[in-house]
Simulated assay, not measured.
Amino acid sequence: MSLADLRKDYSRASLSEVDTAADPIDQFAVWFEEATKAQVPEPNAMSVATVGADGRPSSRIVLIKQFDQLGFTWFTNYDSRKGADVAENPYVALLFHWVELERQVRIEGKIERVTKEESDAYFYSRPLASQLGAIASQQSRTVASRETLEQQYEATKQQFGDHPTRPEHWGGYRVIPDRIEFWQGRPSRLHDRVLYTRSDDGQWQRQRLQP
């Protein structure tokens, strides 16, 4: 079978702009809970797309750690490629794909760092090995070998023991959304797409998009 012949007809559910919540964060909470109950593998996994100063886009999968009316939050190394990108261009796109439910959620907005207190709280809630790994790894930098990376980790372990300190270059980002789209697969590629856009007064508007 050729790649062109690989296709699936979606038929699990439908999505109406009339039946969705007035607030997209509330709607996201409903879908996220349904993905969790459906035992979707890592329902908190999302793609983060950034654009650097050179105009080149880049995307990667990260794990969301919190969402609320303030936005969507995750944690990373500020000196990584994505950190360098958002320092130049503070607008990003997020994507959740829950293939088992035939659903996607697309989120666009402006990014900001969370407070040091929020970064501290999450960093010290992580397993010790993850704390040490965050210190040891110079994320997105080249390394000579796996052995070199493991040596960096062991050196960090010897230095900090059981009481590592959160490095200044590691912490949280929050995306403040201004566009959120909910996509539900439907038969014949006539998919349901409901788009929320935030107006200047902070209110959300809903509309249906053609597939």
Rank of each mutant, 00 (worst) to 15 (best):
E154A: 02
W183M: 03
F182C: 07
R179F: 11
P177L: 00
D162S: 12
P187I: 14
Q159C: 01
Y173F: 10
R189C: 06
I176Q: 13
R186T: 02
I180E: 07
R174Y: 04
Q159T: 08
H191M: 12
R179S: 14
Y173W: 14
Y153Q: 11
I180G: 11
K157C: 06
G171H: 11
Y173H: 07
P164R: 13
W170Y: 07
L190R: 11
I176N: 14
P177M: 00
Y153W: 14
G161F: 08
G171P: 03
I176G: 08
T165H: 05
P187M: 15
D162W: 09
Q184H: 06
G185C: 10
E181N: 09
T156G: 02
R174C: 00
P167D: 04
L190K: 10
H163G: 09
Y173L: 00
R179D: 05
T156V: 09
E154M: 13
F160P: 03
R179C: 12
G171A: 06
Q158I: 06
H169M: 02
I176M: 13
F160A: 06
L190P: 02
P164E: 05
R189K: 13
G172M: 00
Q159P: 01
H163R: 15
W170D: 00
G171T: 08
T165E: 05
Q159W: 08
D178R: 06
P187E: 15
T156F: 08
H163C: 08
E154I: 04
F182N: 03
T165D: 02
I180L: 12
R174I: 00
R166H: 02
H163N: 15
Y173R: 01
T165K: 12
W183S: 04
W170K: 04
E168N: 07
E168W: 04
I176Y: 09
P187L: 15
P167Q: 05
E168Y: 07
F182M: 04
R174S: 01
I176R: 14
H191E: 12
H163Y: 14
Q184M: 13
I180V: 13
R174L: 00
